[in-house]
């Protein structure tokens, strides 16, 4: 059943709070949206409402981590990563064990428009040494990613969707931090997606298959560190790469893939996402359609690129 990954996160965090007593949670007046409220209701003594003051929240999270806690600091992706220098010095440089949680990723949030749409957050977080960057694709994966990041010793950035996303994993799926997740094998191209675009990429692969194009669909849940070995293996088989993300194509997952392949295994590459533009207001589905991130849009772009 379609479910927003922020909802899966909130449920998973509340459950994990029982097992891991070091977990504390901070939010900046968006707990009802980030779903950290589920933890807050269950563990009021371990939840800190910081008000609309993200810089101070990030700093407090750093201090809690340096004192041995495992803080999850939550807000919208754009507001959180907008306080870049605080994250850079107080958390990343200090190697503070903070889990930054940015919900409302991308244009997928819909009508609220650009000021609420996190569309450069991956680029920002990726640039910081030692920060693990994860964007899960569905409910199953999100729950396991929350546990994996809580267990990982070091700063992390978790990117989540506001909009419901389809299940892309079956029961029994095992999330492996730092590993590429091949969802569908193929020989003609490697189709890499992350977060809210994984479902549409799978849909596009079906459409392409009907035209005789076999896409290998890969879920890049861990954007940093990127599993370059697995990436090179896929590309050595398919010979070309398309990346698709609800984020600017500059510095995000597509950027990471381009950088890695450029050095390791150069191959023709096409990046889909926000093409050096901001988004806009509109229904989530309508935005994905307009910006070519829905299944038909991805299939169309891939088809046109392969067979112009």
């Amino acid at each position: 059943m379609p479910k927003a990954t922020r909802q899966s996160f909130g449920e998973a965090l509340a459950a994990l709070g029982e097992k891991e007593e070091r977990i504390v949670v901070l939010d900046a007046d968006l707990s009802c949206s980030t779903k950290s409220e589920l933890f807050a209701k269950k563990f009021p003594g371990r939840f800190f409402q910081m008000g609309i003051a993200e810089a101070n929240m990030i700093g407090a999270a750093a201090g809690l981590a340096l004192a041995g806690k495992v803080p999850f600091a939550c807000s919208f992706a754009c507001f959180l990563t907008g306080r870049f220098d605080i994250i850079r010095v107080s958390i990343a440089y200090a190697r503070a064990n903070v889990k930054l949680v940015g919900t409302h990723a991308g244009i997928g949030i819909g009508p609220d428009g650009v000021s609420q749409q996190g569309t450069e957050d991956l680029a920002l977080m990726r640039a910081l040494p030692g920060v693990t960057v994860v964007q899960p694709a569905d409910d199953r994966e999100t729950r396991q990613a929350v546990e994996a990041l809580a267990a990982h010793d070091g700063p992390c950035y978790l990117r989540l969707t506001r909009q419901p996303v389809d299940d892309v994993h079956a029961e029994g799926y095992r999330f492996r931090l730092g590993a590429l997740d091949v969802l569908r094998p193929g020989r003609d191209l490697s189709l890499l997606a992350t977060g809210g675009t994984v479902g549409p990429a799978l849909g596009a692969a079906k459409m392409l298959a009907a035209r005789g194009i076999e896409a290998e669909v890969i879920n890049v849940h861990t954007i940093k560190p990127l599993d370059v070995d697995a990436l090179a293996r896929s590309v050595s088989k398919t010979g070309r790469v398309v990346t698709v993300e609800d984020h600017t194509v500059i510095g995000g997952m597509g950027g990471a893939v381009a950088e890695a392949l450029g050095e390791r295994h150069p191959a023709p590459l096409k990046r889909l996402g926000l093409l050096n533009v901001f988004g806009e207001s509109g229904a989530s589905d309508a935005l994905y359609e307009k910006y070519g991130l829905d299944a038909p849009g991805i299939a169309r772009s891939v088809g046109a690129w392969l067979r112009p």
Partner: peptide, 15 residues
Amino acid sequence: QGMSIAQGMALAGKM
């Protein structure tokens, strides 16, 4: 930035 960090430590100190 340091005051916020100290505050976070103080929160942990209270716990």
